[in-house]
Amino acid sequence: MDLHTDNLLGFLGTFGRQDERNVLTLNVLLLGDRQSGRSSVGNALIGGDGFQTGICISGDAVTTKHRLLCRNFQRFFRRQGAESDLTLRVVDTPPMLLPRPHSVHELCPEGVHVLVFVARADLPHDNTRLEEQTLFGPGWRRHALLVVTHADHLEEAGLHPSDYLTQTSDWLRALAEEAGGGVSFVDNSRDWPSIRGRPLRDRLLRLSAENHHRALTVRTEVSL
């Protein structure tokens, strides 16, 4: 598979130094079906519009190749009393059950720190179980965050997010219960990529810290 990689600021290492500040680099993998809002979540995370978004009239996915965008957020947090930068390397994937392991490994040879699953609140979901264990091993749930987009439709329907999770498909309900980073609902009726960018980055950082910033190793021997 062809890979298209955009490095805005380049890879700085998991822990490096930039202008005497610590730098923490996190690899983030976006997963979700077509039109789920996956690329928009990626744009929110990097604080830009580098990932292509929109509605494809033909029904095909807008994202057809794995794509990497990278951005450094200076003085984003404090670690052991020192100011630290946060560098996010965000990989958007074509909509499929599992991404190609060799593609992910080529873009993230150090592994993946956070798996971000994106699902739309206003669309039905296949009642199939995602088998990330095949690609990352049994510990993948501790590194997972579920983002539910178009949550404004729940409010219009008078449905509380917790009630929605009890009524959704089995696999999505199980993922919401098991994901180490929990569930984040975003409202698409507002300019949410700019509004929700910082809260989403904060959640990624907390989740990675809970895992001591250890990355999931990609199992390249998996045949998909």
Rank of each mutant, 00 (worst) to 15 (best):
F76Y: 15
G197K: 05
P109V: 05
R142L: 08
E210I: 03
L29H: 09
D122A: 11
T87Y: 01
R203K: 07
E221T: 05
D202R: 00
I57Q: 15
L154D: 00
E221R: 10
T128P: 00
I55N: 12
L107R: 09
A144K: 07
G158Y: 01
D191A: 14
C56R: 14
Q52G: 03
E178L: 12
P124Y: 06
D202M: 01
H160M: 06
G16Q: 06
L224P: 02
C70V: 15
L86A: 06
G180H: 10
F136K: 01
P101W: 08
Q133P: 01
L207A: 00
V112N: 15
L68G: 15
F15A: 09
P99Q: 04
S39Y: 11
Q80E: 14
A121L: 06
N72A: 12
Q52I: 07
V62P: 11
G182D: 15
V62G: 11
D49P: 12
R78E: 08
H113T: 05
G16H: 02
A176T: 14
H4T: 04
Q74F: 10
A151W: 01
F11Y: 11
V218E: 08
T53H: 13
H4C: 02
T14L: 07
H113E: 03
P109M: 07
Q18P: 03
G158R: 10
D60G: 15
E83H: 09
T25F: 09
L12N: 06
L207K: 00
S36V: 11
G10E: 00
A44D: 09
R21A: 14
D2Q: 03
V186H: 08
R198V: 13
H102F: 02
S40C: 07
R78M: 02
R173E: 04
I195M: 11
L224D: 10
H125Q: 13
E131N: 06
L154Q: 00
V147I: 07
L154I: 00
D49V: 12
D19W: 01
G59S: 08
F185C: 10
R67F: 13
L135S: 05
P94V: 10
F185K: 09
G180P: 13
L135H: 11
S58Q: 14
R78N: 03
P109Y: 13
E106N: 06
F51G: 04
L30I: 13
I46R: 07
N211V: 12
N211K: 09
S169D: 03
G111L: 10
A61I: 14
L45Y: 12
F11R: 15
S162T: 00
D85P: 01
H160R: 05
H153W: 00
L146H: 07
L145S: 04
E155C: 09
R34C: 03
Q74N: 11
R34S: 04
Y164A: 01
L29W: 09
F73V: 14
L29V: 05
L123F: 08
L12D: 12
H153L: 01
G37Y: 07
L172W: 11
